[in-house]
Amino acid sequence: MKKLLLTAFLIGTFSMSYAQSNYYNDYQRSITDINWQSVVADLLLSTTQANQINNLNSRYRDYNTWNKVYVVEPGRWRNDRYSELERILGREKYAQFKKRYYRGQNPVIVYNVSKNDYKKYRKQQDKYYKNQEKYYKKQNKHRGHGHDGDWD
């Protein structure tokens, strides 16, 4: 019985630390995926703003320092980081930042992709393509084409 409990505990601990490390990897990518020097130049940020962004980017230099803050709720890093970034940049420049570097999406959403989010996205995408197929078939019938608009 003790072996069973110990095994369950170790599996739970391993899976929790694995999930934590995925969040930390996303956190690291949120920093490394963007050239912050070009952000400073593109948005014409002040020296103070540039220094604040650099401090924000170097706040958690390793997994242990990050994990001390986010051990209970690891997904919270996204809201914390991007609300702080919005505070540093101001609303207008933050909107420009999102538009240029995240194609208008909220960065919190970009780094909040889970299996369920992906399934929901795929379902929406499949629905979109089915609607497009129906639309093109309908258009081809109205144009007098002899086929149903089959997709090649």
Rank of each mutant, 00 (worst) to 15 (best):
A8T: 03
K137M: 10
Y135N: 08
K93P: 04
V69G: 00
Y135A: 03
R91S: 05
A50W: 02
K134R: 12
E92A: 07
H147W: 11
R76W: 14
N35P: 03
Q132M: 11
H142E: 15
R87Q: 07
K119Y: 04
Q37D: 14
Y94K: 07
L89K: 04
K2G: 09
K123P: 00
T7Y: 00
K120H: 09
K99V: 07
N116K: 11
F14L: 10
E92G: 03
V71H: 14
L43W: 02
W36H: 07
G12I: 02
F9M: 00
W36L: 05
K115F: 13
Q52T: 01
D80V: 10
D117P: 01
H147Q: 08
L45Y: 11
K137L: 09
S30L: 02
K123G: 01
N51K: 15
Q28H: 05
Q28F: 01
Q124I: 00
N51C: 08
N35W: 07
N25T: 11
I11V: 13
F14I: 11
N116C: 01
N140I: 02
K68L: 09
L89Q: 07
I31M: 05
Y27K: 01
N67M: 09
N116L: 14
A95E: 07
D80E: 12
Y24E: 02
K138N: 14
A95T: 14
W36E: 09
N51E: 06
I88K: 05
D42L: 05
A19R: 05
D62W: 10
K141L: 08
Y128S: 07
V72A: 13
R78F: 11
H145S: 03
K137H: 09
Q139P: 04
G146S: 12
H142F: 09
V40I: 14
H142I: 08
Y63W: 04
I109L: 14
E92Y: 15
R29F: 10
Q139H: 11
S30M: 06
T32M: 14
Y128N: 00
Q105E: 11
I53E: 00
Y121A: 11
Y63L: 06
K137T: 06
Y129T: 08
K68D: 09
K3Y: 05
E86D: 00
H145A: 09
V40W: 02
Y135K: 15
W77S: 00
K115S: 04
R29S: 11
Y118G: 01
T13C: 06
S30Y: 06
L10F: 04
D148G: 09
